[in-house]
Computed example of a mutant assay.
Amino acid sequence: MSQFTWFSARGPALREAQLDRRARLPAPAALDRRPLGEQRLVVLDLETSGLDTKRDQVLSIGAVVIEHGAIDLGQQFECTLQRADHRLNASVLIHGLAPSAIAAGSEPAEALLAFMEFVGDSPLLAFHAAFDQRMLARALKQSLGQRLRHPFFDVAELAPLLCPQAKIPRGGLDDWTRHFGLQVHQRHHASADALVTAELALILFSQARRQQLDSLLVLQERLSGWRRRQRAHQLA
């Protein structure tokens, strides 16, 4: 049997072992009313070559797991993706990834397969999640021919929803970490940002439980209403 198998005439070329791994990736679990403390969640942060979700590329992935109501430091993911066509630009001043580090990274298909195996069927959390969701979805499509179907929760939305008294309606990660007195060891580093986002998420989940919002399904429902009110306020 050939070592290489073409996914399609227009899709990525994947080795047979990669196709097998892709086929075994679990479908995302449906959101339900299990208490937050019983959920496994993957907190994600991406470093990218820029902010254009149609042109820029994922350069590194950092993730940590929240399980049994705590951050499980035994379940962490960190990977730099090899990008042969990556050129030095202003973004290196933010993420600090030199072209040599990117050239020495993992093959994108291997990195993304490993990450999705790490994720399993768990929901994903990120700060300003829409950007990470679009970038990850595009990377999966380009490198694996895989559609991203996992639900994402945006910690940047959960924070003002659950803590309106903070009066930080459109705050960034730095604003919320300062508000709660969290220590950030290294900003714009995927793993470090994922960890501090997870710490912030645990604080917010504690607030959610106090407000009888103790499941992802209930949080999703409350977020939908909050978004509608935000849009109506902006149009008023």
Rank of each mutant, 00 (worst) to 15 (best):
H189F: 11
R228S: 07
R134F: 05
F205S: 01
L124E: 09
H188G: 00
A17I: 03
L25K: 08
S143E: 10
S100A: 10
A13S: 13
A23E: 12
R170W: 07
F180T: 01
E110D: 15
L219N: 03
N89I: 00
G62L: 03
L144E: 04
P151Q: 06
L97P: 01
L31P: 02
G96T: 04
G11P: 01
L204V: 03
T53D: 12
M135V: 02
G50E: 13
A104H: 11
L148Q: 00
A23S: 10
A23T: 04
P160N: 11
P108W: 05
G105Q: 08
R222H: 12
A13D: 13
V64F: 05
D121M: 00
R55C: 03
L235W: 15
R227I: 01
H95D: 03
E157G: 04
A208P: 06
L144K: 05
L204E: 05
L73A: 13
A198E: 07
A27T: 05
G181F: 10
L125R: 11
S215Y: 08
K141H: 13
T197E: 06
G105E: 12
Q142G: 01
G37M: 09
E117Y: 05
L140N: 00
L125S: 08
K54D: 15
I94V: 13
L73K: 14
S215V: 03
R178L: 09
A30M: 15
R228G: 04
Q183K: 14
Q186S: 08
S2N: 14
A9M: 13
A198N: 05
P28N: 14
Q230K: 15
R87S: 10
H188W: 04
S8W: 10
D45I: 02
L204R: 06
Q207S: 07
A166P: 05
G120K: 12
D175E: 04
L124S: 02
G50K: 14
L140P: 00
E107L: 09
L144D: 06
L73S: 11
A111R: 03
E199G: 01
A63W: 07
E38P: 01
E67I: 00
H185Q: 15
D132N: 14
R24S: 10
F127C: 01
V64G: 02
S91K: 09
V64W: 07
H95S: 04
A156P: 01
F205T: 01
D132L: 01
H188Q: 08
L161R: 12
L125K: 07
K167A: 15
S206A: 06
D85V: 00
L73E: 13
S91N: 13
P35D: 12
V155C: 11
D45P: 04
H185Y: 10
Q39E: 14
G181H: 14
V119T: 09
G37N: 09
D121V: 00
L97Y: 06
R229C: 08
L14Y: 09
V218A: 15
A159R: 04
S206E: 15
W6I: 01
D45W: 04
Q220I: 00
S91M: 15
F153P: 02
I203Q: 12
R55K: 15
H150W: 12
F180E: 03
L213H: 12
S191P: 01
R209Q: 14
L158M: 11
Q76Y: 09
L51R: 13
L158I: 02
A13C: 08
L144R: 05
D193F: 02
N89R: 09
D72P: 01
E157Q: 15
